[in-house]
Design a protein around this nucleic acid. Structure first.
Lengths: 207, 207
DNA sequence: CGTACTTTTGAATCGCATCAAATCTGGTGG
DNA sequence: CCACCAGATTTGATGCGATTCAAAAGTACG
């Protein structure tokens, strides 16, 4: 838990951080979290807006029997944005892996949004884009066949039927909600049927 | 396509509309859309922010062969928020059912957000809550067993293990991404195993 | 009273998850 | 540079759970 010194280095690969105004940068804290660490508990008062630099952070609740129910899972980007305006956290916030976080004091974050119209515009547009992305992913997860999810992904996330993956196929399979074995088989079948061209991490809809 | 006269009547059942400032209300248009009607086409310049009062509106693209790919599907609430700041619509907007819409001119909407801090606060908080809801639904759709989705729903959307449905079970099944037959069977199994108490539209986690 | 829709149960089929195992790949340290 | 290791990629076989088709009973509404 320490102030952020090398802001430019952090912002690499985290575009939205570049839009954060100086005053808020100075209030930010950088904080490591070991795998399994509980950062905040349900019921606690939210003092920070969290940004995941690396690792994986989860929001989860527990059933009466103690089984965890994951509400969100983030390995990059802001998490628990909604708690900025709520009196308490509605779930536990835990590190699923060794992680690195930025903590922005909620009050400073709200002031930055109020005072800095450029930052506000970026924030609003980031929220709206995240909603668009999530709604598309939702629609995709409603498709039952693995091949439909793959093609939907290309249509939704690609440009003109072409998409370049930024992740391993195994990670992509997890995002698509299918096992990696089925993803490999599905890609092979789509390619041999001529519906898809696979070249490294670039996939092209064909035919 | 006409100005909105009875605003209070509209806002019933659409809480967020109550926060819309007078200036923006006066710029709003109410507009029916028949099933199948194409409201805007991909590439068109977004002139309005859309709100779905009733019916169902879809954002969709088409594959090279013309098969539709649904990116969003809304039967209430704002749709295509992200297009407010983009130069063109990135997908077609069509009515899947006979629908009733509100159209807010994009410029007026932006001005209202800039000028009215109360409206802005409500809007920001609505976007953040929508993100929370969507991320939870995403996690739920990643669960493979129908019973897990049901229990996850109760934990995420309910209060203390109790949830009251606002929709038919058939509609709930669609939201959960399972067939209605399986939902009925799953509820029956969960109830007979003592994990769930079902009373009309109220479901209670037990045991 | 009739109609449309939801709820419910049954049976057959299909696709995915899972377990297992082999190969490939990128990165690390000797 | 090479040996090595962890993780990703790939293929095979099996079982389970969901989808689907079918049909009956219940329910709301005009």
């Amino acid at each position: 838990m320490k102030p952020v010194l090398e802001w430019d280095a952090l912002a690499r690969g985290h575009a939205i951080l570049a839009a954060i105004p100086l005053s808020l940068r100075q209030a930010a804290l950088q904080c490591p979290a070991a795998r399994g660490a509980v950062l905040f508990r349900r019921g606690a008062r939210p003092k920070y807006v969290l940004y995941v630099l690396s690792g994986e952070i989860r929001l989860s609740r527990h059933t009466a029997e103690g089984q965890p129910v994951i509400l969100q899972r983030r390995s990059g980007g802001f998490i628990a944005e909604a708690s900025m305006e709520s009196k308490t956290y509605h779930c536990d916030i835990v590190a699923a892996e060794d992680s690195e976080l930025l903590l922005f004091p909620s009050a400073a974050f709200r002031h930055a949004l109020d005072d800095d119209s450029a930052f506000r515009a970026v924030w609003l547009s980031a929220l709206a884009r995240e909603i668009r992305r999530l709604r598309a992913q939702n629609e995709r997860l409603h498709l039952h066949k693995a091949s439909d999810r793959v093609l939907h992904y290309i249509e939704a996330e690609g440009q003109g039927g072409v998409v370049t993956l930024t992740q391993t196929r195994k990670a992509w399979a997890a995002e698509l909600g299918i096992s990696h074995e089925v993803l490999y088989r599905t890609l092979a079948r789509l390619e041999s049927s001529g519906a898809l061209a696979v070249a490294g991490k670039t996939l092209t809809r064909t035919g």
